[in-house]
């Protein structure tokens, strides 16, 4: 198990990883300062036969230093993250022309619906598939999250994306895959006894291949409707 984050495969994953490593360094330094300081004080100031402790109530100057240093570091981290947060989840963060994909979480499976030829969700020609998310490479995708019963959480570790699907709400969140291959999608919010089984496979195709897959599945579905549509 490596301490570093697993390889990332989406556009803003790099920003998240960069922030993670920045904080890892800052907290790493603070960790070392405190732990080494503690060990050093334990050894240096351990009780000696007629040892005498220093009678002092503290130094205001020292307090001001570490208070302001901590405050500055913390504010800097805050400012850096606010930008990234706004780019990922801000009000108008969803890039125009993102492919809408309907992610409908229900107790213990994901129904993923793809817009048909008209490119719009909710029209008659949508194609709904269970637990399979197929995406084109380097194209922004906007996942329209809905849930039927409990709160589920749409979590793809490789894309560094996580967003709860709350029943009664439609939440839109975007990401853009940057590597082809298969990744795993999991539910990250306790949603009942099958929570651990809400696994779906995410496959990122090259653009042309994605289109071919979509058409082929569209034709197959048109031939004989799948059980899911006949709720």
């Amino acid at each position: 198990m490596s301490w570093l984050l697993p390889p990332h495969a989406s556009s803003y994953a790099a920003d998240i990883d960069w922030l993670y490593y920045l904080i890892l360094i800052i907290t790493g330094i603070a960790f070392l300062v405190v732990q080494i300081g503690l060990v050093w004080f334990i050894i240096k100031y351990r009780a000696r036969p007629n040892g005498k402790a220093l009678y002092t109530h503290g130094f205001a100057k020292a307090e001001w230093i570490w208070t302001s240093v901590t405050a500055v570091v913390v504010v800097v981290i805050g400012l850096l993250s606010a930008g990234v947060w706004d780019r990922i989840k801000g009000r108008d963060s969803i890039p125009p022309g993102a492919i809408p994909i309907g992610i409908h979480g229900k107790q213990f499976e994901w129904h993923i619906s793809y817009p048909g030829a008209d490119g719009q969700l909710g029209t008659g020609d949508d194609l709904s598939i269970r637990n399979q998310l197929h995406l084109p490479l380097n194209k922004p995708v906007v996942a329209t999250l809905t849930s039927e019963d409990a709160i589920h959480s749409f979590f793809i570790p490789a894309f560094r994306i996580k967003q709860d699907a709350v029943p009664g709400m439609t939440i839109r969140v975007w990401f853009q895959p940057t590597d082809t291959g298969t990744f795993e999608l999991a539910c990250a919010e306790l949603c009942g006894l099958g929570h651990y089984r809400m696994r779906a496979v995410v496959t990122v195709h090259a653009e042309a291949e994605y289109q071919r897959w979509l058409d082929e599945r569209g034709r197959a579905a048109a031939a004989s409707p799948t059980a899911l549509l006949q709720r």
Binding site: L5, Y12, D15, I16, L19, Y20, I23, L24, I26, T27, A30, F31, V34, Q35, V74, I77, G78, L80, S81, A82, V84, W85, I88, K89, S153, F155, P157, R160, I161, K162, A188, E189
Partner: peptide, 21 residues
């Protein structure tokens, strides 16, 4: 201190996207 420092990871919203839950 370790607990407090690991809290900083979660306080920053983008990193929390990944490590929440």
């Amino acid at each position: 201190v370790i607990g407090g420092l690991s809290g900083v990871f979660m306080a920053t919203t983008p990193v929390d996207i990944y490590i929440h839950d």
